[in-house]
Amino acid sequence: MRRNRLGRTAVRVTELSFGAAGIGNLFTPVTDEQAGQAVAAAWDAGVRYFDTAPHYGLGLSERRLGAALRGRPRDEYTVSTKVGRLLQPAAAGGADDLASGFAVPATHRRVWDFSASGVRRSLEDSLERLGLDRIDIAYLHDPDDHAEQALTEAYPELERLRGEGVLGAIGVGMNQAELPARFLRETDIDAVLLAGRYTLLDQHGLADLLPLAAARGVGVVIGGVFNSGLLAAPRPGATFDYAAAPDDLVARALDLQAVCERYGVPLRAAALRLPFGHAAVSSVLVGIRSATEAEDAAAMLHHPVPDALWAELKERDLLPPDVPTPTRER
């Protein structure tokens, strides 16, 4: 699998990256064995970039990912985690964490903290859970309501940690395009993880963020290419951004699927390939919770998508005319 340089950094990421929220029991439980099999299948398919966060399963994702990668050559893979939420022990009880989306016991509570000391503690805790001595990429995680502290306290601390060799690159990971664009303008950030805002159904990232990233040499990782499910299997009742998709979006997704089917292309393949039309995009991150999903994602990444398919999507107004589409070489 092709590896791309992440912006101006020395960090390399594979075109397909492993989103590890699923092995942190996102929505439904996954066993330790299933999590290990998912990582192993992704590895066998050539994936060498793995993304996690303390938020995912209250640390379960980090622990499982670290266990699955243990014994593999450290210089052969890239790991990113996130800062902004500290995990603090919670009072004993029978509660679960499903209100936050994870099928795990609520042994800890999340505390927002974008202070310098919070960032350092968060990374120290993540390194312990992962069993690693360094993080390749640290993302500021969802600082929507904490922008000033993230800019003035968390980011400078990440710069210090980068200088100490604790991490290789600094990024911001969000479900919106506007605030990451501000980080691009006001900091020397290395990467952006943009979730759900550059897909077949939503191209908000193209207005400002992606051109700015390209101009400044910042690497972009695109997540949420299936918009949480609608573009994986469009049907009434499917989810878009983790809520029931409105009827007009379901109809649009079904139209996209119909065009893809005429070219013998699964909609998932077109959704995965689209971001690579933009020069700033280094990798596409897919949430994976099983070996089957890992194998399918790799197959979709490599599925040929003819130029004529992109042209027809634009002719039918299913894709805006200014959206750059990938060539067969990219």
Rank of each mutant, 00 (worst) to 15 (best):
residue 134 R to G: 02
residue 256 L to Y: 00
residue 293 E to Q: 14
residue 317 D to W: 07
residue 85 R to P: 12
residue 119 V to K: 07
residue 3 R to P: 09
residue 323 V to G: 09
residue 115 S to T: 15
residue 72 R to K: 15
residue 59 G to E: 07
residue 74 R to Y: 05
residue 173 G to W: 11
residue 145 D to K: 13
residue 184 L to H: 04
residue 135 I to A: 03
residue 58 L to V: 02
residue 154 A to N: 08
residue 41 A to K: 14
residue 77 Y to S: 09
residue 281 V to Q: 00
residue 54 P to V: 03
residue 16 L to Y: 10
residue 255 D to E: 11
residue 256 L to C: 02
residue 79 V to A: 13
residue 90 A to K: 10
residue 271 A to M: 06
residue 301 L to T: 05
residue 257 Q to A: 12
residue 199 T to L: 13
residue 108 H to R: 10
residue 131 G to H: 15
residue 70 R to C: 12
residue 296 D to A: 15
residue 299 A to D: 04
residue 276 F to W: 06
residue 286 V to R: 05
residue 188 D to I: 04
residue 56 Y to F: 11
residue 188 D to R: 15
residue 243 A to C: 03
residue 230 L to K: 09
residue 99 A to M: 02
residue 10 A to P: 00
residue 228 S to A: 12
residue 222 I to C: 02
residue 92 A to K: 05
residue 171 G to L: 12
residue 261 E to D: 14
residue 218 V to M: 10
residue 222 I to G: 01
residue 251 A to N: 02
residue 224 G to W: 05
residue 228 S to Y: 04
residue 297 A to S: 07
residue 129 R to S: 13
residue 47 V to G: 11
residue 100 S to G: 04
residue 231 L to S: 03
residue 22 G to C: 03
residue 34 Q to M: 15
residue 268 R to M: 04
residue 156 P to C: 07
residue 19 G to W: 03
residue 223 G to L: 05
residue 300 M to D: 06
residue 298 A to W: 02
residue 165 G to C: 13
residue 113 D to Y: 11
